[in-house]
Design a protein around this nucleic acid. Sequence first.
DNA 1: TAGGTTTGCTTCGAACTCGAAGCAAGGGGA
DNA 2: TCCCCTTGCTTCGAGTTCGAAGCAAACCTA
Lengths: 165, 165
Amino acid sequence: MSDPAHDVDPVQLGAYFALVEVSGLLRHAIEQQLQADGGLTFVRFQILRRLQLAPGGSHRMTDLADAIVFSRSGLTYQAGLLEKAGLVARSPSPDDERGVTIAITDAGRALVDAVMPGHEAVVGRMFLDRLSQDDARTLTDLLTPVRDHMRAAPPRSATPRRTRR
Amino acid sequence: MSDPAHDVDPVQLGAYFALVEVSGLLRHAIEQQLQADGGLTFVRFQILRRLQLAPGGSHRMTDLADAIVFSRSGLTYQAGLLEKAGLVARSPSPDDERGVTIAITDAGRALVDAVMPGHEAVVGRMFLDRLSQDDARTLTDLLTPVRDHMRAAPPRSATPRRTRR
DNA sequence: TAGGTTTGCTTCGAACTCGAAGCAAGGGGA
DNA sequence: TCCCCTTGCTTCGAGTTCGAAGCAAACCTA
């Protein structure tokens, strides 16, 4: 477990801790805003936004779970709530009888649109205020390859897959 | 609610979404490692680490909650578990009869030390692999003022404080 | 120094999260 | 084609999280 002698530079470790702290603060601020402006939790907002961005406004359940880094069972639960609220609709996937496709409804889109301005305002005030456009670009350029790298490795659910017997 | 006409630049917004995604992936990876190497959850690790860093190895409950961006009631719950496990000790604050001081025990320090190598290894592999030392420094330099800015504003618990009557 | 307010923590109830287990459909290889 | 393994989702139970309410100490201010 853990590469031997994979010592981490303190400067790099500092970047990691800074990111953890900032993302904690950011998420907390966002949660307040989403709740206040649209009665949404962070997870539900993420689900709706991903669907809204997706071509056709829909995703396979599993793909969506991966996209927002969330457990499948948790997504089933939230999908149930969102469906009950009419923000989302589930239907069997056409190609695979096992699959379920989750799609955003017009009401769902409307809610995202309603919440987005306040959302951007909060993110702007809390997070972006101290970041010039150049800074933001730099930040994105730093984080994008990191994200891609993390996406590449163990796709999700690090449960040690039983090796084929 | 929300500054009027506070339109957010798409590039900046992209930085925000990238950060949210990376922190989600990172946290997921970390959670697996901490659980595997020390039976720790992310929150419990954060508590122990903060205490270990603190001079005297102790904090006021409230200060600790703010530091890790966590609810007070949630911290009470986790402190109870950690205390039961002997990793932490609670005692009334000397100066303020209401306050509770939470301190890390030797066992707690030992556990953090035991988990840290694996932790750094995972963070190194997942997050820092694609970040040179300069990149990491840049990232920290970008995030630090942002963090300070977020720390400055509403300290915690955005519950609209009743204005003094 | 008495009254009302604020602060620090815990308790409580409701909602949420996750992994394990369950179940049905898909996909080979013999 | 018949098994057996894998995949996709849901159900289930246990543990966790949060805000509101409760309670006690501390702080004003008259």
